[in-house]
Amino acid sequence: MRKILLVVLLALVATSCVELISEAGKAASEQINNQPVSTSAHNYEKVSLDSVFHVDLPIYMKPMNQLNSDAVLQYGNIYKETYFVVIQEDKNEYVELFKEFGDYNDELPVIENYKNAQKNMFTESLTNPIFQDYGLSSINDKPARQIKIFGKVDDIEVVYIIAFVEGEKDIFMLMNWTVNDKLDKYENSFEYINGTFKLINK
């Protein structure tokens, strides 16, 4: 009886050890998978839009065409759930339109007004959005702002890292996003992408 009990106990211990090793392996794998992706230049490729701008994007991102109908550039990876688009708007048209609507503050820079307008747009389109400003003022010597937005789309928790860049004639919105639980992995990469955005003769 004692021998049988001992065998049973040893079996339980063995099973527990296997489970512990298995769980440890899973935890290690998850930790590796959640490590921030590299921001080394060789992991990125320069993508240009005509003679307007260029930006460095991760080599795992590929061109897409259904992310945003207003975008002039769309890249992403559906398996990694990472996406990037650039929206380009005529600066004078924006200023005139929002002044007409009474939603423009002449005491603020154009880029600050544009950032605030876009934050209002996201407030309408996301559920329970939370905004965080980076305090960034320029990207490659152009007036710029950058924000992080947490929110829900169709009950899916998402996070955006968005930069706004002002050129002489146009304003650009650089929009990166992923699901919330992948932010730690891709946040540095998104910030790196925004920092490489450069206007060409603008």
Rank of each mutant, 00 (worst) to 15 (best):
R2W: 10
L6D: 04
V7E: 08
V7L: 15
V8L: 15
L9R: 03
A11I: 12
A11D: 03
L12Q: 10
T15W: 15
S16P: 00
L20Q: 05
E23W: 01
A27Q: 05
A27E: 07
A28L: 14
S29A: 08
S29T: 06
S29W: 11
N34L: 15
P36C: 09
T39V: 15
E45C: 02
E45I: 13
K46S: 12
K46N: 07
V47L: 10
F53P: 07
F53M: 09
F53I: 07
V55P: 02
L57G: 06
M61D: 02
K62G: 00
S69I: 08
D70A: 14
V72L: 09
L73I: 09
Q74Y: 12
Q74L: 09
N77Y: 02
I78N: 07
I78E: 06
K80R: 12
E81T: 10
T82L: 02
V85G: 03
V85L: 05
Q88A: 10
Q88Y: 01
E89G: 02
E89R: 11
D90G: 02
E93K: 13
Y94M: 13
Y94I: 14
F101S: 06
D106E: 11
E107D: 13
L108E: 12
L108F: 13
V110D: 14
I111W: 07
I111R: 09
Y114W: 15
A117W: 13
K119S: 13
S125R: 13
T127W: 03
P129M: 08
Q132H: 04
Q132R: 03
G135A: 10
S138D: 12
I139N: 01
A144P: 05
A144C: 03
I147T: 04
K148C: 00
D154F: 09
D155W: 05
I156V: 12
I156Y: 04
V158G: 00
Y160L: 12
F164P: 10
V165F: 08
E166Y: 08
G167N: 11
D170L: 10
F172R: 06
M173K: 14
L174T: 03
V179G: 00
D181C: 00
K185P: 02
N188Q: 12
S189I: 01
S189F: 02
F190H: 12
F190N: 08
I193L: 04
T196R: 05
T196H: 06
T196D: 01
I200E: 04
I200W: 00
